[in-house]
Structure formats: structure tokens, C-alpha cells
Design a protein around this nucleic acid. Structure first.
Lengths: 336, 336
DNA sequence: TTGAAAGCGCTAACAC
DNA sequence: GTGTTAGCGCTTTCAA
């Protein structure tokens, strides 16, 4: 690896000049510029980002931690973040928490030591207390999909409660009264809010909440399948429910696979709703009726807040993203 | 941000001692250790990863560039890489090329300047010439899904030709003779090899290759839908083909969505095969018959080669991962 | 077991 | 316009 000094020597200029040319800064004579560029090419030279970060006290880097990058939801979320991040001239660093407190901690710690200029974290396993400690030491840290009391303006999420109400309303509007619910086993705000939306909407229509129709799984495809398997196992033959509302599109996809394996037709036998409106939900057959979760908008909001915080700018009011129902083909009227 | 000096001062030891404690290295008295840890906690101190990388001439970091992290194929690939990377105690840096030469270049350049200790790149837009130039300047760079002549042992891919042969054989074995093909519009090796497998297998069974049954799209869900739309538009009513082999699972998913929109049933009206065996292919309805692409194994292989290369170790023989057919529900005999 | 000090590769005053 | 040089925060000899 050659250094800036090698380039300077070869180009017959000082290191300062090399730095100027390579950073496109201030006035440099065309002659020096050419010499430097030529020398750079000859040596295959790259500025050392670590050294730059150190000297500039700026890593040009934004950290994002999610559960798992291969999960479609987080794939889209990270994508959304990265797009905004690059637009602003920064680079993205991703950490993965794997639904696991230890790993979440490590992911956050790593990003902090990389001196990220912004930090957006999704954590579902760490306790409120631990997260609050982070929020206190890292003033520019922002959370997504989770709200910490006292830190509301640094927590970005969507209206989970309303979203789930809309989904269940849609099922009821089609005539369903026996509605099961597939839930995430991580009980953080979004989970409890969505479940609450489910319960309240049933109640509002005079339908009694039946806990034996609610099953949990990890918020993943596998988790959706698992929960679905439990649901079917506990209700044979299928007559206790005609529809299933799901915590997320991903879990809904898992549910659909399991229903299909069990020769149940969607929506003829069972209607389904998801949550998130991932691209995935348009690929499923039938396409999934779901609640739009504006990840992209939330990513932008989170990024801007984190950046502002880093610069010590005043904090705005809390942000709660709007949701709306997206009607597709997975909901129809119950049979008979 | 406090520095190691602040910690040293507060703990009443030298910076060297702080460094020793925080790196778990060599002999330090329990007393110093306690003092340092206490001071660290008090200050909320984190070692600066950039400074460490500089001092140690080791960033502890591996770079991976893919097309797009939200793409299910790359989601799984990055995941596989990250798992191996963490096992070895490194950290992952991801770059995205977005099917675009300029972006691919930038992603690679960024990772190089971060001083990655290993570099795994998937690039489909950059020319062979440009990539070879990179391979020459970065001796530890390894490519996936692409083979550069003269650099075979630094290029990891799977047996694309055989894989596509297996898929088409499967269709023919079910009685199909009119088989369309949906292809990626990026003509790199995997694309041409799979197409060749398709052609040769047809020919082997005495079926004439018909170019009017082959359509391109970008290797994405949207691309699959687009290509499918073209295919349908050019063959109305549908009587020129009874099956479609696809370049990838992701494109197959796009195709399935389009067929479904057009009221075509799978597999009753049209049989389909994919390529990759993503988790996605088990979620589609019907589940997709496809070719297993051992991404995880390839990721490990790529990582180990890159690391060896970095350490100047000898290069092994070329690696071409095995493939096999995975039978599911998207293929059946043609009608009538 | 500990500390002093010389770098790591770069940027950014500052002086010319 | 250009060069000199003092750091950035850390690790790692080398001596003590």
C-alpha cells in the first residue's frame, strides 16, 4: 500500500498538494494537478479512509442496525437508509442484531467505535433500560420501530395501532367475525400496539377477543410458518376462524405457505392481511392485502434527526408516520 | 468524545496501560485493570476504530459488494458472508453496485480506501477490462458469479450451465416441448452459461431453439414481470409455450405475479422453473421448482480465498460450486 | 508491570 | 499556489 507521501515524491510536490488535489479543494495549478493524478494512477493509490476520518474528525459514515439484512423488511429499510445516506455524501455501515440482546449490543458498540456521524437503531431484544443508557451516552442515536418514554422525539415509528385497526376493519367489512391473529414473539411497542388494534377493533364490533386464536412466532418467515402450524394444530377441523390478521407481511408469507401445504385456499377458505406493504406482498399469490408502512419516509426522518442531533441542532416534535390500507386479493367474504 | 488520554488521566495510569487493558493484552495488574474499566465506564469511552485501524495497519474489516441489498438473492448472499466474517472476528462493510458501472466502481473504491482486509465483489456492469485492472491492483480481491480469464482461481461461481440443463431437463421430462426462457439482460458469464444450458438441452432432445421465446429483463422482480409481460404480449393467445424456465428465482417470482394477473394458473396452464433456491422460492404459491445455488458455501469459499490472498498464501485451484435440482410444485405435465 | 515516545496516513493551519 | 508541520487517537516498541 503506497501512501500520500509516495505520491508526493513521485509527483514532485508536497503531501499537502496531493491532499488538495485528491480532495478537489482550493487552488492548485493545473500542472501540479496533472502530476499528482498521474502519480496516483501509476501507484494505484487510494486515500486511507481511516486516516482521513482521524484527521478530519469525521468518518463520513452513518450506522444503521437492523435485525437481519436478509429479512425482506430490513432489506427494504436498509435500502431506504442507504439511498438517503448516499444522497448526503455519507457511507453506510450496517450492523445486525439477530433478535438477540448480546448481538444488538455488539452491533451498536461497533458502530459507535467506528465514529459514525449518525446512528439509527432497530433493537427488539435489548431492554428499555439498556437502550436508554445508549441514548444518554450517544446523543445522536435515533431509534426506529420502538418508543422509549422520555425520548419520543428521537424515536421514529408508524401508527401501528391504527394500521392494525384498518386491517381488521377490512376483514370485518367483508363479513368475517372469527379472526385469528399471528403475532411477533418480541413484545416491544409495535407488537403490543398492533395486537391492541386487533383487540379493540374486534370489540368495537361486538366480537369477543379469543386468546386461543392468537399465536406467536419470531418475526420472520419461519416464525410465520411456525405460528400458523400451531394455529392449525389447535383448531382442527378449521371452523373456529375464517381469517387471519398477521403482525407483518413476512409472517403472512410464512402463514400462506403453511396454509397452502395444508390444502387451504386463500382467500376462498381463509382471508389474510399483512402489515408493511413490502414488495414481497405483491409477489405472493394471491397478492396480499396489507397496511402500508412508510419505511422510506421513516428512514429519511430518522437520518435527518440523527444528523441534526449530531450537529447539536434543536430536536423537533415526535414523528409518527401515517399508515393506510392497501387492498389486494387476499381478502374476500367468508364461505357459506 | 473522550479519548484514551482522558481515561488514562482519570484512572491514573498511562495511555499504554489503558490500551493494554482494553485490548485484553499481556500482563496488567488487577488494580490498573479495575481503575481503567471504572474510568471507561464513567466516561462512556469507546476506542476509536479508525485510530486503531491506522495504528495496527488492520481495519479488521471485510468488504463485500453486491448489486442491491434488498434483492433477496443478495440479502442471502450478504448474510452468508457476514456470518463467516463475524466467526473470524472481522466486521462487514457492504457496498452496492445497483446494476450500474459507475456505482460499482465507487463501491469498490470506497471499500478499498477503508482498507478492507478482504474484498469480495459481485459486479455485472463493469467491463472485464476494468475488473481485471482492479484484480491487478488489489491482489486480495475475489469475484463471485463472474469468471475473468486468467483469474479463475480468484473467481467463485457455481455450475450455471449444468444447473440450467437440470431445470430444462425437468420440464422436458414432464412432457414439455414448448419452453420459453426469461433471461437477465446483463450478459455476464452466468447469464450466457444458463442460456446455453437451456439451448443445449432443448437441442439434445431434438427441440429447435426458438429465439422468439426468449425475453430479457433486469435480474430483479420488476425485470421478471417486464419480461413476462413481453412474452405474453408476443404470444397471444398462449399456445406457443407451456413452460417457462427463468434465469433466477427472483425473476420467476416476477413472472408468476404477471401470469397470475393474466389469469394463468401455475402449473396447470404454465410450468415454471427458477434458479438459486432462495427462501423466497418456498414462499411462492405454488412453491418453485428450482436449482440450488450454494450461496453460503460460495461465500465461505470467497472469504477464505480473499483472506489467504491477503496473507500472501498460495492460491488454490479454481472453485466451481455444485448445483442440484430442487423439485417443488411449479412443474407439472402440459395440458391436453 | 508500567510509561515515554515514535509512528500509522492524512488534513489543515500557517507561513512563504 | 505551495510546502512545513502539528496534530487526529491509538498501538507498540523500548527502557525502566
Amino acid at each position: 500500500m503506497s501512501t500520500i507521501r509516495d505520491v508526493a515524491r513521485l509527483a514532485n510536490v508536497s503531501v499537502a498538494t496531493v491532499s488538495r488535489v485528491l480532495n478537489g479543494s482550493s487552488k492548485v495549478s493545473q500542472k501540479s494537478k496533472d502530476a499528482v493524478l498521474q502519480a496516483q494512477k501509476e501507484l494505484g493509490f487510494y486515500l486511507n479512509a481511516n486516516a482521513r476520518a482521524l484527521a478530519q474528525r469525521d468518518s463520513h459514515t452513518i450506522g444503521v442496525v437492523v435485525s437481519q439484512i436478509s429479512d425482506p423488511y430490513f432489506g427494504e429499510a436498509v435500502q431506504a437508509c442507504d439511498d438517503s445516506i448516499h444522497e448526503l455524501g455519507y457511507n453506510l455501515l450496517v450492523g445486525q442484531g439477530y433478535h438477540n440482546a448480546e448481538r444488538e449490543k455488539r452491533a451498536i458498540d461497533d458502530l459507535i467505535s467506528y465514529q459514525c456521524r449518525g446512528l439509527i437503531v432497530h433493537a427488539l431484544a435489548l431492554s428499555e433500560k439498556e437502550l436508554m443508557a445508549y441514548m444518554d451516552t450517544i446523543p445522536y442515536m435515533v431509534m426506529i420501530n420502538r418508543v422509549l418514554p422520555g425520548y419520543e422525539s428521537r424515536c421514529i415509528n408508524c401508527d401501528n395501532y391504527l394500521g392494525e385497526c384498518l386491517a381488521v376493519e377490512e376483514l370485518i367489512a367483508h363479513g368475517h367475525t372469527k379472526i385469528a391473529y399471528i403475532n411477533s414473539s418480541h413484545t416491544i411497542e409495535d407488537t403490543t400496539e398492533r395486537l391492541q388494534g386487533y383487540c379493540d377493533t374486534l370489540e368495537k364490533h361486538g366480537i369477543k377477543y379469543d386468546p386461543s386464536l392468537v399465536f406467536n412466532g419470531s418475526p420472520s418467515l419461519e416464525g410465520g410458518s411456525d405460528a400458523a402450524a400451531q394455529l392449525l394444530a389447535h383448531h382442527q377441523p378449521i371452523k373456529d376462524f375464517t381469517a387471519v390478521a398477521c403482525y407483518s407481511d413476512v409472517m403472512a408469507a410464512g402463514l400462506m405457505a403453511t396454509l397452502h401445504q395444508n390444502k387451504l385456499r386463500i382467500p376462498e377458505d381463509i382471508s389474510i392481511t399483512g402489515f408493511d406493504n413490502l414488495f414481497l406482498s405483491t409477489c405472493l399469490i394471491p397478492t396480499l392485502t396489507t397496511v402500508n408502512n412508510p419505511v422510506r419516509q421513516m428512514a429519511e426522518e430518522a437520518l435527518h434527526r440523527s444528523l441534526s442531533l449530531y450537529e447539536g441542532k434543536p430536536i423537533e416534535a415526535p414523528h409518527r408516520a401515517d399508515v393506510h390500507l392497501v387492498r389486494r386479493d387476499s381478502v374476500t367474504a367468508p364461505k357459506e
